[in-house]
Design a protein around this nucleic acid. Structure first.
Lengths: 194, 194, 194, 194
DNA sequence: GATGAATGAGTATTCATTCAT
DNA sequence: CATGAATGAATACTCATTCAT
């Protein structure tokens, strides 16, 4: 087995164990048993339990960032639709990678000040992206003017909570409806007879 | 010092330490040093580190639940205003109890399956409350008809994230503006020229 | 049992184990079994295995330094006799503390650069003492002029090797004869018919 | 590269690493990196880390024994001069093989009961040689009668300590002076006006 | 012969909890 | 009630050695 594959094998196994037992309750033993490798092999590919976990978190960041595409106003596709597609892709990744999802949203917090910082930075980046998207929307007259930093955070939280709540077991089929519901809410609000 | 006061003293000290170092990184030693009590005394008042932490979490639940009042349609106060006052009180509690806030939002996750369950139940209850509030709003024709469970969760997430982001250091004075921004967003949405 | 006594108990037990198995081959388990204390207790009194060992080495340094008294030329006792008494006391300590002796002479080397440095410094100090003693001897005309730093080292080595060789099992009774033999050698040399 | 050369290459590299880090702190990894061979290759030429180390120690024994020549009373060269030449050769080997020197004098102790025994045996042999030399000296009336076993040990210790202290960095040129100083001390002692 | 990925036995240290005083 | 010395289960990580290629 080549080195990359072996690393992947361990990563995969670890994701399952971390998702199931949480970071603190999983022992290195759990991981190597799940991966079917020897103890030493683990440390051949990862510096430490914490190092492996970080790799998992980074992997999820990468996957998410890869599907969040900037809104392109010059595109044929309307901005609102682009936003919708972004959201769809985010939900899709979150659903496909349920285990990593759980790790990101539940286990990655409070391990370590450094990792906490890394998490903050990621969410900060996402919030910034949303902020810029809002700005674009404002500029083209599609969205009204709001306190962007606050609203950007709020939207991120709204998505995070939905993913946390439904991202693990909702059948993927419903994702489109979910996204439409959320978008409709975000865009039009709740007040009747608008 | 009477028993209740002693218990309070430990609880207070523990909240500070947990907030600062996180659950897993705080040792019982940290707590007893901060509280200025002997090791044995700790176990006179709490069953375990985990038990003390749970007490802290429950305390926060209680405080929050105490300020989230059901919308009373027969009241003089308009429902929207009642909602606003609920939110204001939530932010106020969260700001006043920054440490417990941090514990609830950051540290309480992934300690323990049982505690995770307890957290879920609490958030479930809050979501249910929001769901019911939405229903009330629908019924009186103030709000439009939406997929309530989803929207309830989304609103909760939106509030949680805002608190997480700004709840720790934002001066309390801004709270009203924050709440108004959020409510305006939730009610009217983002689309321009509605 | 009071703290000092408990510490002593562990120190004593550890000295025996280190002397018997050497530093690297003794596990903390060996020490706590020999001392009859729990694992945690060990770390209550010592920072680490290495820390305990260092304490043992320091203790030996202290004991040795306590019996090596500066030559006092104004004393009633002749300098040669003072030197002889110093040596007698050194041998006596080494014999009484056979275990620590073995630790110092055999086990303490190569553990750690820092500890190596500590050892060097001690021997350096002893060599310096001998150098000064030689100087005193020269000044009062008792000894001839030699390359003192070299001779001081040589004398120290001569004593160390004798202790290493005979210090462990020679009955204490012979010590006086041993010291006399050594002194006679050092003072008069080996050439016949001087 | 032929087998013998490959073995030599590893031995050489290992000597450097052992001398620098000490036996316990050098890992097989250090040695194979220094030697530029693969891990498996190491075990093709040596049974174990300990086995390689032993080979190094034996090599030093051999080198030393090769330069310590028995005193030949029937030779043209006076016995004292033969002794001096022995010493000169010992210092010379020790200086040329600084690394092995360090291994022998500092690292080889306490590795292993068996190796400790081997060391003792070697020093025992050297002491015996000195004892016999003293006896020869006595017989021909050059030396006075002393407690030979003790004095033999003492002389060995005196040389060992000098080598330990100055053998690593003293320029070889000074060796002759050093040996003369030592011999003068051993033969004539320190007392003034003999 | 040479390689280096894989192995797993071995061990120091931490820290929540207990209990005799 | 209060104390804090004592306990020991739990666990991440190292590194000499093996063996399939």
């Amino acid at each position: 087995m080549d080195a990359e594959a072996r690393k992947e094998q361990i990563l995969e196994a670890a994701a399952g164990v971390f998702a199931g037992r949480g970071y603190h309750r999983t022992r290195v033993s759990d991981i190597i048993i799940a991966a079917g490798v020897a103890r030493g092999t683990f440390y051949l590919y990862f510096e430490s339990k914490r190092g492996l976990f970080e790799a998992l978190v980074e992997r999820m960041f990468t996957k998410l960032q890869a599907v969040i595409l900037p809104i392109d106003v010059s595109s044929q596709v309307p901005p609102a639709e682009q936003l919708r597609e972004n959201l769809l892709r985010v939900f899709s990744v979150m659903y496909r990678e349920r285990e990593l999802n759980r790790i990101l949203l539940h286990e990655a917090v409070g391990i370590d000040p450094e990792l906490d910082e890394r998490l903050s930075a990621f969410y900060e980046a996402v919030a910034r992206f949303l902020d810029e998207s809002l700005e674009t929307g404002e500029r083209i007259g599609f969205l009204r003017v709001v306190d962007r930093p606050i609203i950007a955070r709020a939207i991120m939280g709204l998505v995070k909570e939905t993913v946390r709540d439904r991202g693990l077991d909702a059948p993927e089929l419903d994702t489109a409806a979910l996204v439409d519901t959320l978008l409709d809410f975000v865009l039009r609000g709740l007040v009747a007879g608008a």
